[in-house]
C-alpha cells in the first residue's frame, strides 16, 4: 500500500507546489512562506533536486546527456528519498510546515512523458508521504515558454526534453515534451487530489486563492499554532500576576 494515499500522522503540515517550469509556482511558494512566517508559523522550504548526495552526479550526467529515461527517474528518486528522510520528515516531526517546490508528482508527470512505465514510477515513490495540500499551477505551454525565454533566453537540454528526440529544434521539442508533461499532470489531478490553480491569473489573485485554500484545509493547525502562543502568553501573564500577589 502506498503511503502517498494515506494521511500522515506527523504534527507538522506538508504543502506542495507543482507545475512545469515557468508556471510561477516558485514565486507563489515564496509568497506563501512569507505569509505563514508572518503568522508566527515556522516554515521549512525544500526544493526538487537539491540533495548533496546526487547533485553532482545529476549535474555531470546531464551535461554529458548520458541519462536514459530510467536512470533519470532513479537519480531523481534517490535525491527525493535523501531529502524526504533528512529534510522533510524531521521538520514535520517537529511540528513545522514544510513547503516543497515540486514533489513526487513531478516525477510521475515528467518520467512518464519520457516513456517510463506510469505504475512503475508510482510504486517507486510509494515511500513518500501524502501532502496535506498539493497545488498544481496549470499553464499553457506557450506562456511557460514565453516566461522562460524572456528570463534567461536559453532552454536547457532536459527541460526541453531533447533526450526524447521528439524534435531537433529546442523550441519545438520543448512544446511537444512539456505539452505531454502537462497532459500527465492533468490526468493526475483527480488521482492525487491536486488543487488546480490557473497560473495565467495575476500573481496577487493566485496568492489570495492559495491562502484561502490553506486556511480552509489546515486552519485547525494554524489556529493551534496561534492559539498555542496566545495561551502560553496568557499563562505567563497569569503566573506573573500570581508572583506579584
Amino acid at each position: 500500500m502506498s503511503k502517498l494515499c494515506e494521511p500522515h500522522e506527523f504534527p507538522g503540515r506538508l504543502i506542495v507546489v507543482e507545475g512545469i517550469d515557468g508556471s510561477g509556482k516558485s514565486t507563489q511558494a515564496q509568497l506563501l512562506q512569507q505569509w505563514l512566517s508572518s503568522k508566527g508559523v515556522r516554515v521549512f522550504f525544500t526544493e526538487w533536486n537539491s540533495s548533496l548526495l546526487v547533485k553532482n552526479t545529476t549535474k555531470q550526467a546531464k551535461k554529458k546527456n548520458q541519462l536514459t529515461p530510467t536512470t533519470f527517474s532513479l537519480l531523481h528518486a534517490t535525491d527525493f528519498a535523501d531529502r524526504l528522510f533528512y529534510r522533510v520528515i524531521p521538520p514535520l516531526k517537529a511540528g513545522m510546515i514544510v513547503i516543497a517546490d515540486r514533489y513526487s508528482y513531478t516525477a510521475f508527470a515528467r518520467d512518464t512523458a519520457r516513456g517510463v512505465d506510469p505504475q512503475w514510477v508510482r510504486d517507486l515513490y510509494s515511500f513518500a508521504i501524502k501532502p496535506d495540500i498539493a497545488f498544481y499551477f496549470r499553464v499553457p505551454v506557450d506562456i511557460s515558454l514565453e516566461r522562460i525565454t524572456s528570463a534567461r533566453m536559453k532552454l536547457k537540454f532536459y527541460e526541453a526534453g531533447m533526450d526524447t528526440g521528439l524534435s531537433n529544434d529546442p523550441l519545438e521539442c520543448f512544446k511537444l515534451f512539456q505539452g505531454e508533461v502537462i497532459r500527465q499532470y492533468d490526468m493526475m489531478t483527480k488521482e492525487f487530489d491536486l488543487h488546480v490553480m490557473d497560473a495565467t491569473e495575476r500573481i496577487v489573485v493566485q496568492q489570495r486563492q492559495m491562502r484561502a485554500t490553506v486556511e480552509r484545509i489546515i486552519g485547525d493547525y494554524l489556529d493551534r499554532k496561534n492559539g498555542g502562543s496566545r495561551q502560553r502568553g496568557a499563562a505567563q501573564a497569569a503566573s506573573g500576576e500570581a508572583r506579584n500577589r
Binding site: L53, T57, A61, T68, L74, A81, D82, F85, Y86
Partner: peptide, 30 residues
Amino acid sequence: LMAQTIDFAKEGHKMNLHTFNLLYATDFAD
C-alpha cells in the same frame, strides 16, 4: 555514471535504506 557517487555515499555513511537501494538501482540501470 555512479561509481563515484556510491563511493562518496559509502564513505560518509550518508545513506539511508531508500537511498542505499536507489543508488545501486541507478548504477545497475546505467
